[in-house]
Simulated assay, not measured.
Amino acid sequence: MPMRTECKNFESRSYPNGDTVRKCNIGLAPDAPWRCPENCSGYERRLIDAAWTHGTLIVPPTPPEPKSLDDGSAAAVLDAAEGILNSIGADVRAEVDAERAAAQHRPGIFRRLFRKKR
């Protein structure tokens, strides 16, 4: 089944360089941007009229399907990529926390100017 653009969990975002991301926000479409699962448990029809002004949803055409969707290798590549990102997540978090902690111990210009006199 092609991606369901009417699902509230479908998102399409275009960037100034012409790239477009088409995805399932809850991660239930392993073959995105080409296909949604046949009986997706996360499918919910998007509200059409909720008393607010809607912009136009112009979704660029879906890129052609690679042949590897049928044999499952596209999903395997995406799973491997997700595994790589998940494996470095804790390291990246530790680096960010260390940078924030170091920044808190360095007085900024405003802290130096407005520090309380003792």
Rank of each mutant, 00 (worst) to 15 (best):
E11S: 07
E11L: 11
E11T: 04
S12I: 00
S12H: 00
S12V: 02
R13W: 01
R13S: 05
R13T: 09
R13F: 04
S14A: 15
S14R: 11
S14K: 14
S14I: 14
Y15N: 08
P16L: 09
P16G: 03
P16N: 06
P16V: 07
P16A: 13
P16K: 10
N17I: 04
N17G: 05
G18W: 11
D19S: 11
T20E: 01
V21S: 07
V21N: 02
R22G: 03
R22K: 13
R22M: 13
R22F: 07
K23M: 08
K23E: 09
K23G: 04
K23A: 09
K23D: 02
K23H: 06
C24V: 01
N25Q: 13
N25F: 01
I26L: 12
L28V: 11
A29F: 00
A29M: 01
P30Y: 06
P30M: 10
D31G: 08
D31K: 08
A32H: 02
A32T: 02
A32W: 04
A32C: 07
P33H: 01
P33N: 05
P33I: 07
P33R: 00
P33C: 06
W34P: 01
W34M: 01
R35W: 07
C36S: 09
C36R: 00
C36Q: 00
C36A: 13
C36D: 09
P37G: 10
P37I: 10
P37A: 05
E38T: 11
N39Y: 04
N39F: 04
C40S: 10
C40T: 02
C40F: 05
C40V: 04
C40N: 05
S41Y: 07
S41M: 08
S41I: 04
S41H: 10
G42L: 02
G42N: 06
G42K: 02
G42R: 01
Y43M: 11
Y43V: 03
Y43L: 09
E44K: 15
E44M: 15
E44Q: 15
R45F: 14
R46I: 14
L47H: 10
L47V: 10
L47D: 08
I48L: 14
I48H: 10
D49I: 03
D49Y: 15
D49W: 14
A50F: 14
A50E: 08
A50P: 02
A50L: 13
A51Q: 14
A51V: 04
A51K: 13
W52G: 10
W52C: 13
W52E: 12
W52F: 13
W52T: 14
T53L: 15
T53R: 10
T53H: 03
H54G: 08
H54Y: 09
G55K: 15
T56C: 08
L57V: 12
L57P: 02
L57F: 10
I58S: 12
I58H: 14
I58Q: 14
I58W: 02
V59Y: 09
V59I: 15
V59P: 00
V59L: 03
